[in-house]
Design a protein around this nucleic acid. Structure first.
Length: 960
RNA sequence: GCGGGGGUUGCCAAGCAUGGUUAAAGGCGUAGCCCUGAGGCGGCUAUCCCGCAGGGGUUCGUGGGUUCAAAUCCCACCUCCCGCACCA
């Protein structure tokens, strides 16, 4: 462990001193620009960040070794309200929060009290996390670091917004939000004490006419108005007559207050109790029928208007309430209702739905056995029927112009028609209570003068889809998710009134939404270095300058003089942008697909020409901790810093990458990190031995074999990293290659060949994107000069592929395995093992069979025989040939085409020679004498008559 | 509800887009042996079941189907996880 830490510190320093990760434009080299979504500076980096970032770094390092001029920059996200919120919690002395800071984040006491200042908090974590990032060994160009509240960055964001507005992508409008009247701000999910996931719902209010006024009854099912039979109000609740936008409405008092928050002009005229309304009549604005107002205790005045209309045929609660009412004539008298008024009310059927008769509500009540309106199953019945009728319902003849239409299809149309005819209005409300963390019940507020990004714009969406198609997405399974997100996105509010960030350029009291800071900021990385080096001030960064840099717009000379900039500087910045852009690879957690990554595409599509759109987009799973989701409250929060200190950077990086790829969620287990650490240490020791022992120039079969399989492994690693399959890549580079080295060592019996050291040289390079420090140290030992970080990536070399060598080793391996299997099955302890290699004519038959089945069609034994019998020598032993060909036809047919071609191209093996070569190895392994015969050797020892079982690639065995 | 991704041999996890070389990579764990003063590390062997000859049998969520051949293709079902907006 000490060793690993020492190595890591050494190379971290060496890289920084040599500045090898600082990337400047170089027209002679291909470039590669990779980015990681900057982390939010309200806490320490955790192992989840580490997983995603390590994937980016491994890719960056791999590309750099391939000769690309790689730029991997890093920055810090300070904007938004989380940091403000967090320091607020410190200020207010939130005990649990402070405890977490102290114990999980490891904030020292003297720093803790300074965190009441949000800017201080952001810079505190930025410093912490920068150090963590350094220790992780990420190959970052630090000259381009910035945070998102810097004045220069703000200028860039302002430019972005001006452009978007010019293109009509930023629009003004209103928007309903869950609102806390005490905090005077929207109450997001994380700010809630109660009501997680609850969003404002739009209710349709059917305006029943009542004495020159309106009684607006709230519903989600306005189509049922054709089945209305009466109105329900709560007799004991408080209602009010109010003036709403010039009309007289009667709604609950609570509803009146809510409407005020929803951009309506509301003036209370008088208060009244619900019972005042009972027994009165209203007019159905659609059917012009008269309905009486009845009392109902299920009506909740805290919900929408506190007025509902009754559709007993299709709404279980309405039917139940009506039935309850009919059964208690006394209560009706109390309200002055004649029992016959209730008696005469019959359900009106107006939706036909499969599986139900005239009155679905009645049927479903029977089926579920609902007792009365207080029975909790009443709710279940309502939901069930609603779903049924919505998806499968058709409106009946009494439904006017909507008759015969499906409920699902006609609903929107009907609502619009009703609104236009002043039959209906709408209001927002919360379907379930929401309580703010400050314990205030929330309401819905319609925010005015809200600014929106018009993600609903169909032309924009089309362009984004092009951008998506233009990019390679890894894994590909993420594509449908992107597509559905693009389709689903609507107007999105893009400015808030609180938190850190850039004010809207045309309305400074609004602050630009934090997610807009992360859409095209990669372009900023390409220019910040020079802006800083040239000491350009924020004031100089006018929109015209950005237009020039990003679009090449305008006369260089003129633009330069207005901003008091040297023309050459301006050109140089423009060129640097053009050199690095587009983004070649951006990778993030999959949870950012529905927001950040899609917005990233939206804004690029809107602001940049096609050739500057992103090239590769990667998404990965969410890190789990010992099988559970990481969360501070569960206490399984693991910081990146801590694991680096405990296990070392290389072990951490490898353990993370070996966890998962694609969109699978990797699992962090401390046990497996320890294993990886041991593995790396043991790899290090093995490498040292190989380096130390290399002395001779041998390059025999086994060396050829090693280099051949190494090529294949290099190819797998290369192809895998290329498509961001980092797990496969590392698994191959570490374990699979290791197994090849093991087999070599075992076969060879020593580590003295210089060729082995050459192979190690390749191995170190294959591993270095993943475990860069340890590989750097070994590179120094094996190569003596330069950085492995800049060494040439081992490309697959087809000239080193040696099928014959591989097949020879396969032969030795399978002899060893088969013999062991025989020993196991027979429980013999052999003293002598006889091997019999197949005779020549069998090889001829075998080759013939391989070649005639070349086209991938199965061969038949009879066809094979026909071909073979053309030759006299074969005819002479026709029965033997027939028996043998029968044995191999199936086996060959079952091979893939490639395998057949490969075996055919190798031709007959000199198995006897190969086995003699491997004799001492086999004797060592099997602890018995090995004797090799040819099948047709007349002097062979073959008491069990096994020799005749020999087949090509499969010598017969006799164990004694 | 809508949308997305999964269910593989003790565990983690490949394979599935291009069906056959797959009882199914690799890692971990477990057992035996070797190495070592001991431990760790390392090496070998085994690890679905059966087997005194390299073999046989039964497997890849469940149930059907296509095919000479299916973990891989088709259909239905069961089941787990994730996202759903003013939060980053």
């Amino acid at each position: 462990m000490v060793l690993l830490h020492r190595i890591e510190a050494k190379w971290r320093k060496a890289w920084e001193t040599a500045k090898i990760f600082e990337a400047d434009p170089d027209p002679k080299r291909k470039k590669c620009f990779v980015t990681f979504p900057y982390s939010y500076a309200n806490g320490p980096l955790h192992v989840g960040h580490a997983f995603t970032a390590t994937r980016v770094d491994a890719y960056a390092r791999y590309k750099r070794m391939q000769g690309y001029n790689v730029l991997f920059p890093w920055a810090w996200h300070w904007t938004g309200q989380s940091i403000a919120g967090a320091s607020e919690r410190v200020k207010s002395g939130d005990k649990a929060f402070i405890k977490a800071l102290r114990e999980i984040d490891g904030v020292p006491e003297q720093e803790l009290r300074k965190l009441v200042d949000p800017t201080y908090m952001a810079s505190y974590y930025t410093n912490e996390n920068r150090e963590t990032t350094r220790r992780a060994g990420f190959s970052i160009d630090w000259r381009r670091e910035f945070n998102t509240t810097s004045p220069i960055f703000s200028k860039f964001i302002e430019w972005q917004y001006k452009k978007l507005r010019e293109k009509g992508y930023v629009v003004k409008g209103t928007h309903p939000v869950v609102w806390c009247s005490k905090c005077k701000s929207p109450t997001g999910d994380h700010d809630r004490q109660e009501g997680e996931g609850v969003t404002p719902e739009e209710y349709v209010l059917i305006k029943f006419k009542y004495e020159g006024k309106y009684l607006p009854a709230a519903t989600f099912r306005p189509e049922t108005i054709y089945g209305a039979t009466n109105i329900w109000v709560h007799p004991n609740a408080d209602y009010a007559e109010v003036e709403v936008d010039g009309e007289r409405w009667i709604v609950s008092e609570k509803a009146a207050k809510k409407l005020e928050e929803q951009k309506r002009k509301v003036k209370t005229v008088r208060s009244l109790k619900g019972k005042v309304l009972i027994g009165k009549e209203v007019t159905n604005p659609v059917t012009e029928e008269k309905h009486m107002i009845f009392p109902a205790w299920f009506v909740d005045v805290a919900h929408a208007t506190g007025v509902v209309y009754s559709v007993p045929a299709h709404a279980p609660l309405d039917w139940l309430a009506l039935r309850d009412l009919k059964q208690s004539p006394t209560s009706m008298k109390k309200f002055g209702i004649k029992p016959q008024e209730v008696e005469k009310i019959q359900p009106v059927s107006m939706i036909s739905v499969e599986g139900f008769g005239e009155f679905p509500a009645l049927e479903i009540i029977d089926r579920l056995g609902v007792k009365d309106q207080c029975d909790p199953r009443a709710d279940e019945a309502t939901k069930l029927l609603y779903k049924k009728e919505f998806h499968g319902g058709v409106l009946k003849d009494i439904c006017g112009k909507y008759a015969g239409k499906r409920v699902q299809g006609v609903k929107e149309v009907l609502i619009n028609d009703f609104k236009e005819g002043n039959i209906a209005d709408t209001m927002y409300d919360l379907p379930e209570p929401v309580v703010c963390r400050c314990l205030t019940p929330c309401i819905v507020k319609v925010l005015e003068e809200q600014w929106f990004l018009k993600y609903s714009d169909l032309k924009w969406k089309e362009k984004v889809k092009e951008a998506l198609q233009n990019a390679n997405v890894y894994p590909e399974t993420a594509v449908p998710w992107f597509l559905s997100t693009i389709d689903w996105l609507k107007e999105r509010p893009c400015a808030r009134k609180s938190g850190l960030g850039t004010p809207l350029p045309w309305n400074k009291e609004w602050i630009i939404d934090t997610l807009s800071d992360s859409t095209i900021y990669m372009a900023f990385y390409t220019i910040i270095k020079q802006i800083r080096q040239r000491r350009i001030t924020p004031e100089q960064l006018t929109p015209a300058i950005f237009d020039y840099i990003f679009y090449g717009k305008g006369e260089t000379e003129a633009i330069a003089s207005i901003s008091k900039l040297d023309r050459r500087i301006l050109e140089s910045i423009r060129n640097e942008f053009l050199y690095w852009y587009p983004v070649d690879m951006r990778n993030s957690g999959k949870e950012l697909i529905p927001n950040h990554l899609t917005f990233f595409l939206f804004h690029h599509a809107a602001l940049f020409p096609r050739k500057l759109w992103p090239q590769i987009i990667g998404a990965n799973g969410m890190l789990m901790i010992e099988g559970k989701k990481m969360s501070k409250s569960k206490g399984n929060w693991i910081t990146f810093r801590n694991v680096i200190e405990e296990f070392g950077a290389d072990s951490t990086r490898c353990a993370l990458l070996l966890g998962a790829e694609g969109m699978d969620d990797p699992d962090w287990r401390s046990e497996s990190v320890r294993d990886i650490k041991d593995k790396l240490e043991s790899f290090y020791r093995l490498a040292e031995i190989i380096i130390g022992e290399a002395e001779n120039e041998e390059f025999g079969w086994i060396e050829k074999w090693l280099f051949s399989v190494l090529q294949k492994k290099a190819k797998i690693v290369t192809d895998s990293i290329e498509s961001l399959k980092t797990r496969t890549a590392l698994e191959t580079a570490l374990f699979e290659v290791w197994n090849d080295f093991r087999w070599y060592t075992r076969r060879k019996g020593d580590l003295k060949a210089k060729a082995l050291r050459e192979a190690l040289n390749v191995w170190i390079r294959l591993l270095s994107p993943f475990a860069p420090h340890i590989c750097e140290e070994l590179w120094e030992k094996v190569e003596g000069k330069g950085f492995v970080s800049l060494a040439e990536w081992p490309e697959y070399d087809v000239n080193l592929i040696n099928p014959l060598a591989e097949e020879s080793e396969n032969l030795v391996k399978s002899i060893l395995e088969d013999t062991l299997s025989i020993i196991r099955a027979t429980k013999l302890t052999p003293t002598k093992i006889y091997l019999y290699t197949a005779t020549e004519w069998k090889w001829e038959v075998y080759q013939k069979a391989l070649s005639t089945s070349g086209e991938g069609m199965p061969i038949s034994q009879s066809d094979l025989m026909k071909t073979l019998m053309k030759r006299e020598e074969m005819k002479k032993k026709a029965s033997k040939v027939a028996r043998f060909s029968g044995q191999i036809v199936n086996e060959i047919n079952r091979m893939g085409k490639n395998r057949r071609e490969e075996l055919h191209s190798i031709g007959p093996l000199d198995e006897a020679a190969l086995l003699l070569e491997a004799k001492s190895f086999l004797e060592r392994e099997l602890k018995a004498e090995i004797v090799v015969f040819k099948e047709d050797d007349d002097h062979k020892f073959d008491p069990e008559n096994r020799a005749r079982l020999a087949k090509p690639f499969r010598p017969a065995i006799y164990v004694k």
